[in-house]
Design a protein around this nucleic acid. Structure first.
Lengths: 216, 216, 216, 216
DNA sequence: GATGAATGAGCGTTCATTCAT
DNA sequence: AATGAATGAACGCTCATTCAT
């Protein structure tokens, strides 16, 4: 999971993706460079020149692999959605409720730490009204949240966790974990140089927060 | 309180701002339009043409009032910082600790509701590494947070609230409230049409969350 | 003769020029400022803003006195031509030939010293093919040169001065004197700080040069 | 010898200049067009559109070869200085003094005839205070003049030529030769159609002038 | 597969000029 | 007599994209 727009399931490439090794390598280089640039500058703020330079390719060569700037962006986002939802997907309805949610929080925080660029790419997209991701949000993402909210409701009905609003509970997990990626600059500026890595403390803080919130 | 870059204290204009009515009107129209466009598209994504159209002015006329596109952005941001920190500033060291923090959360959520564009403008800026706001973040903002963290620590030492990490407590308030402005699109998409206004429920949720977190 | 575009004959104003004192003062301020700016930046390089600032007037006020930027320039040039030719006009056919020419050289050098901006304005205009002065060059100026060339030819026929080409003699006087105004920057750079004022030495040099050239 | 910013030594291109034929051709076309336009309109008066049209290229294509309008101008000027000083550089300290100077005058007049655009480009630059050439004037140019002035002083000390001021002697050569390029329009207007080519007569005139001036 | 060359569309900005007062 | 306000036209420049090889 160190690549750009991590693709957990390489099998999905079978049809759409190029075959030769060189193509795969360049495609990945482009996506990785694009992630770097798009996440830092936004879609319009990024230029193909920047992406090409980071990728170590010529600009026309970029467009040999992707039809357009937008196509790169779309590819990045569509590759992202699955990865993005994985931590939630893994929440096991059969597991121990509080532990399941706490584990979800930790996975999500881990993602914010390991994939801050993906988080910012996503944040940029949502901030601008999700012009290229609306369908995935209203479909895939909403469906999964609906499903998991139902699970949570079940847990609550069984008295295993406190009866807080399931959707807002999920929002709160997103907000609190992604904040450390998206507002990283601010977090570090406020904590100052001594607290170089905010994540360990953030992990403990969120443990406390959700522990208290969920206690039945 | 529906204007761009809300100025709670209109008296501050007396010196720095232009005098004639027409100037005040156009300057405000530009700032309001710019807020609309910058918050939705980011700095580079926004164009003067868009801003001019929203403001109902010609493009050169924009530049009659502001020296450059950047100057408009800077004006917006600098006007924003004060407003942005006001809810925290109002937190009274002499007040009742839990109530003070809960009131801060509610003020902050209210701001997310009333000024979502300002919140997104701010989020855009931080996401991109705060190229035009770094100084204010590292100065003004950090200073206030340092001060208030000390207050919180005092309350905790006195056993009035739970001894959670003061800085992360503040981050959590920011994250949880601003999320409803910045990720508004996603929140609404997930909640679906029935929960048209997410804020009342969000308010209740945050009351519970921080009530449980802070209980000594 | 310290004003812009010196007008030796104030009588010519009678009709065309404004009457009130304030108007006369502003008109002069504009022309003086315009001379300053046009001579240093060329016509297209100069802006009305610059001229307005130097003149201490508002930009629309400039256009209250002159119909357009071009009108200011034309006024400047047309006012200049007479002054420009005066030194040559004064050359007296009845005078002592060599002394007359030497005196002309000295008057011309004096003008280069006293009116370098006028000289540069003129040079700019000619350099660019005299788009706004062609008529005056082909008419007024050529006529005077033709007349004086004839005088010189007479002096030469009488054996009073050496029989050098009269037109090129006049060109050489122009070139050698105006050079000290037009290429002032270069002259000073080459001579270095010690020779702060190049004109006295230039005067002696030209005396020698034309003395030897004209000796019969 | 009809190219822009004449490069007498094509070998100097080897490293710095682009390699492909197409690049060389377009680069030259741009420089030639720019020389045409800059020399006639000045830097600010010239537009990239004009240059592009003369060069037969699109405007963005100009900027594919040169980083900016200013970069074209600078390239033109920096290429010019060497060529400009060559005639003086060739003046041989070991040669016969009067003949050396006379030959310099003729070379310089030849340059005015063959490269009038370069002369006007240079004149424009100096007229405006040499904003982009100051360093070269105060360095390269001044150094060469200092050196050659010393040579002339040596010749004068040896009684080979008249003891006129060496610097003003050089200025006079510049003024008298460049005048025929820079003020070409005026020269032709005054001489009228019959004397279509002023240069032959100018050559004879300058021969006489400097012959008499330098005779010991 | 890959790239140097080229461009149309659009960007932020400047500026001479006009308008309203 | 003067100026704040406004703008159309154009400017230098950027950029995603296309073309030719």
């Amino acid at each position: 999971m160190d690549e750009a727009a991590a693709q957990p399931d390489p099998a999905q490439d079978e049809e759409a993706r190029p075959r030769t090794r060189i193509q795969r390598r360049n495609t990945q280089a482009i996506l990785d460079a694009a992630l770097e640039v798009f996440s830092a500058q936004g879609f319009r703020g990024a230029t193909l020149d920047q992406i090409a330079e980071v990728a170590g390719l010529s600009k026309p060569n970029l467009l040999y692999y992707f039809a357009s700037k937008e196509a790169i962006h779309v590819e990045l986002l569509s590759g992202l959605m699955d990865t993005w939802l994985d931590p939630l997907r893994e929440m096991d309805p059969e597991g121990e409720p509080e532990a399941e949610i706490m584990a979800y929080v930790r996975r999500k925080l881990q993602m914010a730490r390991d994939y801050p660029r993906e988080s910012r790419l996503f944040a940029n997209e949502i901030l601008q009204g999700a012009p290229r991701m609306r369908a995935a949000i209203e479909g895939e993402l909403k469906d999964l949240v609906d499903e998991k909210a139902e699970v949570i409701r079940g847990w609550q009905a069984a008295g295993k966790i406190a009866p807080v609003h399931p959707y807002h509970l999920i929002f709160s997990i997103w907000a609190l974990t992604q904040h450390y990626a998206d507002f990283d600059m601010q977090v570090r500026a406020v904590l100052g140089p001594e607290g170089a890595d905010p994540f360990p403390e953030a992990g403990r803080f969120l443990d406390t927060l959700f522990g208290r919130l969920l206690a039945p």
